[in-house]
């Protein structure tokens, strides 16, 4: 479960005990829409350990999910933050139609559990269309304030290109680490 999901669930659970069903539905609706927003900002986050991104220690991914580009557990996504292009008309290595790859990117080093090797992954963003809003994958491990901009997920990294609007994120394999 992503941090976003946990935050949303916690907030919803907390508020649900204090609000009517109707207002809760309004909140949940807002939370779902809000969920579209929070991971909008791609992160340049280092992979602190060269291990598969497990979400939480007690939430170990199954092998099927670590090989599923539509899952936040996909092994290449160990340092990603955003909406997965695989759910938005693209794939883990292609942008959706109509978008433009961002020239600014960041890399992570991820362990492929299938061959036991580590690979350098480039997290290019796809820009020029408003936020996709599907398959959010967001973590704050190693995230740092903006005085370390390459580690900050408060920055919209589409800003380096011709198109400012962020749509989704890819995970392109660069080579063996």
């Amino acid at each position: 479960m992503s941090l976003l999901d946990r935050l949303t669930e916690e907030a919803t659970r907390r508020i649900s005990s204090e609000t009517s069903r109707r207002s809760l539905l309004g909140l949940v609706g807002a939370a779902l829409v809000g969920g579209v927003v929070y991971p909008l900002l791609p992160v340049a986050r280092k992979s602190n350990n060269a291990d598969v991104d497990n979400g939480t220690a007690s939430d170990a991914p199954q092998l099927t999910s670590v090989n599923d580009p539509r899952s936040c557990d996909y092994w290449r996504y160990c340092a990603i933050d955003g909406w997965l292009c695989s759910c938005c008309g693209g794939s883990h290595k292609s942008c959706p139609p109509g978008t433009v790859p961002s020239p600014v990117t960041w890399v992570g080093t991820c362990l492929n559990p299938n061959d036991g090797k580590s690979y350098i992954i480039s997290y290019n963003d796809c820009c020029g269309v408003q936020g996709c809003g599907r398959c959010s994958c967001h973590r704050n491990e190693g995230e740092r304030p903006q005085y370390r901009p390459s580690l900050s997920n408060d920055i919209n990294w589409c800003l380096g290109g011709e198109q400012l609007a962020y749509n989704c994120s890819t995970a392109v394999l660069i080579g063996e680490a």
């Binding site: 949303t8 907030a11 508020i15 939370a31 809000g34 929070y38």
Partner: peptide, 14 residues
């Protein structure tokens, strides 16, 4: 002198 505290959250419209 009689201050109030405001709170909000990204996912909560209130």
């Amino acid at each position: 002198d009689a201050p109030v505290l405001y709170t909000a959250a990204l996912f909560d419209p209130n």
